[in-house]
Write a protein that binds this DNA or RNA. Structure first.
Length: 433
RNA sequence: GCCGGGGUAGCUCAGCCGGGUAGAGCGCCGGGCUGUUAACCCGGUGGUCGGGGGUUCAAAUCCUCCCCCCGGCGCCA
């Protein structure tokens, strides 16, 4: 067993000048000046400067001479306060153990994105990536906390499925014994099953979309938080969405201050997302806004990336768009009883150009209507027999939504590209490492 | 799938238009420096110019086909 050593952040917090300490980590930067060697040693909590001075070191000086970036080390030494050290504190080493030397580290700064993606397994050690990994952790934790505190059951829908939720063109096909199966695009249909035994359910699963997308907002594999509940109408579900999102933003701002600062996130903009309820506009109103802004768009058109971006500029907080034309939305969305040409669907768009982070709806709970929509979409109704059964055996009004975890992390972190919201991004052509 | 940009040293790029012995900075290696913060100074090392085919006395450079990457669009979370 390894005797436990303090985190590097604890050296700053709990160890006074002159106290002896042992730390473990990786060499992050190294400077050799005169007779001394300065090494910044990093662990998950931060980094500290270690000073190697021949006169203070009992272990072999040769080990110090050979130190390289990303070598893994254990250092014993004495804490010293010194203004010349980053953070104002350093460790004067008395002993060095090297667990593993590193050949010249392939990332030195200034590399282009293709190169960095190919050494992603090493790039994840950078301070920006560490910050993003931590922000994602905190956001997932907060969303989960909120759901559990509010009485939602966590469930485990399948990843391998026999049929599509939406279109078939974007499915990843896999071999399933002697048949074909597909990687799940959404757990929604299964969550709709699970509201009958559990009323209010959710799941956090990977979703897969084989879209040939080449945008900064799409991944082929992303983490999908989906919720579904019986006796929730669209309004109820929008309330869940805004409560949950604002809670997660608040928690992240509270617990990940340093990381947001490292990423240069303007948190004054995030603060506005703490106030709920979020504004709600209908699709009709969105079209009018866009027309006023000079976009060539008419009722019935789906809005594209430019239009969506323009819309988000009208708001400083996340906001909802509701009541879309039926033909631009999925078959399972419930028709508005007052206006059959629109559905009870909603999107939650993040401000600052980030756009859609949630898509949800009240579900069609009438057997005939759902059956007709399936046929009208050209889908094979036999694939959906079990799903149609839900409308036969005690059908219930219900609603749900799906949230893209990486989209949320991207907006809250203020980053340019979704690939940095996931450690091992996947899209067309990218499967390594 | 479509539009645009790109592939030259370990990395970032120049050279290509107008063909004529492959360049720079960084890194790395060696030396120097008594406190570095992307250290600095001196010296050294480093290449199937993405791949195939073609034109030419001669191709990184011109023509052609193919591959890969990046940015954007549509689709979505």
């Amino acid at each position: 067993m390894f005797p436990k050593t303090p985190d590097i952040s604890e050296v700053f917090e709990k160890f006074d000048e002159g106290s002896e300490v042992v730390i473990r980590g990786w060499v992050y930067r190294i400077f050799k000046v005169g007779g001394k060697v300065f090494a910044w040693v990093r662990d998950h909590s931060g980094y500290i400067q270690v000073v190697f001075d021949k006169s203070c070191l009992s272990s072999d000086w040769d080990f110090v001479e050979k130190l390289t970036r990303e070598s893994s080390v254990e250092v014993k030494g004495v804490v010293r306060i010194d203004a010349r050290a980053p953070g104002g504190k350093e460790i004067v080493a008395s002993n060095l153990i090297v667990y593993g030397y590193s050949p010249p580290f392939p990332i030195k700064g200034g590399e282009d994105i293709e190169y960095l993606l190919n050494v992603r397994h090493l790039w994840l050690r950078s301070r920006q990536m560490i910050a993003l990994l931590k922000i994602k952790h905190t956001m997932i934790q907060a969303l989960r906390d909120w759901l559990i505190k509010n009485g939602w059951w966590e469930t485990t829908p399948p990843i391998l499925t026999g049929s599509a939720v939406e279109g078939g063109a974007t499915l990843f096909e896999v071999k399933y014994f002697d048949k074909a199966a597909y990687l799940s695009q959404s757990a929604q249909l299964y969550l709709e099953v699970l509201i009958f035994p559990l009323n209010k359910v959710w799941a956090l699963t990977p979703s897969f979309r084989a879209e040939k997308s080449r945008t900064r907002r799409h991944l082929s594999e992303y983490w999908h938080l989906e919720v579904e509940a019986a006796w929730y109408d669209m309004e109820d579900m929008m309330k869940v969405a805004e409560d949950m999102v604002s809670y997660a933003v608040a928690k992240t701002m509270e617990e990940r201050k340093e990381e947001l600062k490292l990423l240069n996130r303007d948190t004054s903009k995030l603060e506005k997302a703490l106030e709920i309820p979020y504004p709600k506009i209908t699709y009709d109103e969105a079209i009018k806004i866009l027309q006023k802004k000079g976009f060539n768009i008419k009722w019935g058109d789906d809005y594209g990336a430019d239009e969506e971006k323009a819309l988000t500029e009208e708001f400083e907080t996340p906001f909802f768009v509701t009541h879309f034309p039926k033909h631009i939305k999925a078959f399972y969305m419930k028709e508005d009883p007052k206006r059959p040409e629109v559905v009870l669907g909603f999107d939650l768009l993040a401000p600052e150009g980030y756009g859609e982070i949630i898509g949800g709806s009240q579900r069609e709970d009438n057997y005939e209507k759902l059956y007709n929509r399936i046929i009208a979409e050209g889908l094979n109704y036999q694939d959906y027999e079990w799903y149609l059964d839900l409308r036969k055996y005690g059908s219930v009004p219900h609603s749900g939504f799906g949230l893209g975890i990486e989209r949320l992390v991207m907006w809250v972190s203020g980053i340019e590209h979704i690939r940095d919201a996931i450690p091992f991004p996947r899209w067309r052509g990218r499967i390594y490492p």
